[in-house]
Design a binder for these strands. Structure first.
Lengths: 351, 351
DNA sequence: CTGAAAGCGCTAACAA
DNA sequence: TTGTTAGCGCTTTCAG
């Protein structure tokens, strides 16, 4: 004779009502006991706990949330979740958030403004407690402004929006790009190409500005033909690189504004039979795991990725807890990591 | 004289009650008009729409969900979101899900069983409509079983659990590993090392089994000293590789069971001054972007990653829509991608 | 210390 | 075609 397995209660979930009934108390008392507030007699507490355990009671968070007006969830809207930069941040946020018993709802905008609006709409209709967003557009941000005005805690990462009064975490893109290009200049390069993204993303524009300023500071002219536009994907970057380096009198060095483009450039160079740093030099914005696996390793401008997620969480929790101070705009410096992809320009050109 | 900006309504959100009042109808009528069901007069419809627009009404999805008993959200619990394999799947799921107006809630278990239990608990208490999970453990899965019994649609990815009656999507890990090792054998290798993960993750175990069977099939003995255990991180894999190749009479070839370990092995070889494929050959499980950037490129067993996410969504929606058929267990074949990291063993040993 | 009752915002019978 | 009403599951006054 074997012990009977517990009856599979199938469909309907057990509610606090069931627990209360089983423990012979009112729902109010059950709630008090279960959530540990107010006065509850010892005997009752015991019976209620027992009943809850037996029935396998799990509070319906939806109902709790409706009551409280909010769900213990933070929404995260990255530009693209499969971008390692955002994936790591997502991970960091998640870890950090868990400590304060919040969940993370990730919904990627895929750099599409319409989609971003949609997602944000949904998230706020869900009454999430706060939002961490990498806005897809630098111009169109009525929807974000509205959120802030409606009192939704919002932290912008990677991309700041001046006219929106909320916390933000960015890096000094212009300075980083400036540093990269200056390094190339210091190595003797004069024809320095750049592959950039002409989208509305602020980040890319700031990096391009850094490039321009570095050249200007060095008294060099800005040559349109050296500035190639590509979408931020490996495939586009390959084409763009090939076009850029197929013109007469091509650049002797290249600066790429993000890691996807750096990858594309690498692939393009390989297919063109160009070797780094012999035939040309390369500096990319954003460090990436691949950079140390290539031969030579790639010199990059690195961002303090690991700091962004945790700080974003700190900020958002702060606001949730009622901090009303003026927006905090954190801007991290970047760091140039010198590896082996830059050399003096030279003989290679005499072929 | 400038037009007054719309009054910033600040705190309280507009509810359907507000809309109804403004349009001079009952809440029921407003709801009917807003959701487009039942009969509503034209005039009323108009007024309601207008009022909603003016007030900026957004339905409270929490309340709707409480009413309906469910939130249009699918939960995804990957082993680790910063693993590119899962990141891509997350992205694919997200894209696919959006078509059916569901949101994706990602909560990474970090391969931790306790955390997985917690997360799943939370998600189901939230009344999500379905769950896509890469279970952290092959043994401990009472919690999953309970979910299924409770009627929660569940799709397992990457790792199957035989005793749980639910849909799953996996790849043929054993066959893939067998193929990889056989390839090494066919190239003349006899001392083939493996770096694997002894965790409870089924995937890793199946891959190890494939390794063992390939050797057995070839009539070769299984040598414990060639089988190194590492955690699935780049750092651990580096150490393990160094140890494995520092012993007397080291392997002439290596098989790694996932891409993190492959990266680690690559880094270890570099630090040891070992060159591929001259000093030793390498085949890794799982393709990864890095594999084509190294010189030589790495031969790998690739999984059909791009198919997993979309199929998982199809399956889960199917169940949500009431499909009661027996569990569907999809198992994809893998594909050996031959690149340049394998050569015949040889002279290199005579140094 | 405990229970009755109201209500979060929304939907859906049921009546009118 | 529209309104009344009940109730999803939970929390929280307010009385007792």
């Amino acid at each position: 004779m074997t012990a009977k397995p517990p009856i599979v209660t199938a469909k309907r979930a057990v509610t606090i009502k069931d627990v209360a009934a089983a423990a012979n108390v009112s729902r109010a008392t059950a709630a008090r006991a279960l959530n540990g507030y107010g006065y509850v007699g010892d005997a009752a507490t015991e019976r209620i706990a027992e009943a809850a355990r037996l029935l396998g009671y799990r509070a319906n968070r939806l109902a709790q949330a409706l009551r409280h007006g909010q769900l213990p969830i933070i929404g995260f809207v990255p530009g693209a979740i499969q971008n390692p930069f955002f994936a790591q941040i997502a991970h960091d946020i998640d870890v950090e958030l868990r400590r304060s018993r919040h969940s993370l709802l990730i919904a990627s905008s895929e750099e599409d403004l319409t989609q971003e609006r949609d997602l944000l709409d949904n998230l706020s209709a869900l009454n999430v407690r706060g939002l961490i967003v990498a806005p897809a557009s630098g111009q169109e941000n009525q929807h974000l402004k509205r959120l802030v005005q409606g009192g939704m805690p919002l932290v912008l990462i990677d991309r700041e929006l001046e006219d929106i009064a909320c916390d933000s975490i960015t890096v000094d893109n212009a300075a980083g790009a400036h540093q990269a290009v200056s390094f190339l200049l210091a190595s003797g390069h004069r024809r320095i190409g750049v592959i950039h993204d002409d989208s509305r993303i602020v980040t890319a524009r700031e990096r391009l500005a850094g490039y321009v300023r570095a050249l200007t500071d060095a008294g060099l002219p800005i040559e349109k033909r050296l500035m190639a536009v590509s979408q931020s994907t490996v495939e586009y970057a390959i084409d763009t690189t090939i076009r850029l380096f197929s013109q007469p009198d091509p650049p002797t060095a290249l600066f790429t504004v993000d890691s996807l483009m750096t990858k594309g450039a690498l692939l393009a160079f390989r297919s063109m039979g160009l070797s780094i740093p012999h035939d040309l030099s390369l500096v990319g914005f954003d460090d990436f795991d691949l950079a140390i696996f290539t031969d030579p390793q790639i010199t990059v401008v690195s961002q303090p990725v690991a700091q962004i997620g945790p700080l974003a969480v700190t900020m958002i929790l702060d606001r949730i807890n009622g901090n009303r101070e003026p927006p905090r705009r954190e801007r991290f410096p970047t760091r140039l990591i010198v590896r082996g992809s830059v050399a003096r320009p030279g003989m290679a050109r005499n072929r």
